[in-house]
């Protein structure tokens, strides 16, 4: 019941979805369409579950006054604001111009977008202090990186504006060379990696369906 049944359900669903792929007949399509319809609903609950666990975590933090619990109050306040504005006018609440969208546009977007732009600074400092041509491999990597970095921006245009003698040479060759690097050697390497990843994903999926890999069941009996 606790382990065998979920494994059996997982196996049956996996086999249905795999076999269905090869059967164009309308019965098979009917089954497929209903499975898709159901999957979307069940999966919604799975995602809501994640949010509920997060709320639980922060509430417990405040409840037991764990380290940084004051920040958890900030998080819960933000959560409350989103929920209130998101439900106060029914399905209307999420249309443009509503408070819910204001909160999204002026609080969530700025912060989330800024978070990853921090990396621009770190990449620059790493370029100076860390990216070393230690080995032949790292050297190749850095050369390809420089070609792509310069070939994909208006680097050549600077030379043109400064009217340096070799500007036309740079202008006509560099973007084309960058594109060639992307189209051939880069493409070959990425295809090799992709085939490896594809095989890995297929093998993991197989192991899960066949019940060989069971770590998704979690601990306990």
């Amino acid at each position: 019941m606790r382990r065998e049944l979920p494994l059996a359900i997982c196996f049956i669903m996996g086999v249905i979805m795999t076999v269905q792929f090869f059967i164009p007949h309308r019965y098979s399509q009917w089954l497929f369409e209903n499975m898709l319809r159901w999957l979307i609903i069940v999966f919604t609950f799975a995602l809501i579950l994640g949010i509920l666990s997060l709320i639980k975590l922060h509430i417990q933090k405040v409840q037991y006054r764990r380290r940084d619990w004051l920040y958890s109050i900030v998080a819960l306040t933000g959560l409350g604001l989103s929920l209130v504005t998101g439900f106060m006018k029914g399905p209307e609440s999420i249309s443009e111009g509503q408070p819910f969208m204001t909160l999204y546009n002026y609080v969530q977007i700025p912060m989330q977008a800024t978070m990853f732009s921090l990396l621009a600074f770190y990449i620059a400092s790493a370029a100076f202090r860390t990216f070393r041509a230690r080995t032949l491999e790292a050297t190749l990597l850095l050369i390809a990186a420089v070609v792509v970095m310069l070939g994909r921006v208006s680097f050549a245009a600077i030379f043109k504006d400064l009217s340096l003698g070799f500007s036309t040479w740079v202008e006509s060759w560099l973007p084309g060379f960058a594109e060639w690097v992307l189209d051939y050697p880069n493409m070959a390497a990425k295809r090799g990696i992709m085939i490896g990843i594809g095989l890995g994903a297929i093998s993991t999926a197989l192991k899960i369906i066949l019940g060989i890999e069971r770590s998704w069941l979690g601990g306990g009996d």
């Binding site: 795999t18 792929f21 090869f22 059967i23 164009p24 007949h25 309308r26 297929i202």
Partner: peptide, 16 residues
């Protein structure tokens, strides 16, 4: 008529 096997996907079946 509807078919019970998609012959264009034979290679996928062999691969799997």
């Amino acid at each position: 008529s509807g078919q019970w096997f998609n012959t264009r996907r034979t290679n996928v079946l062999v691969g799997v």
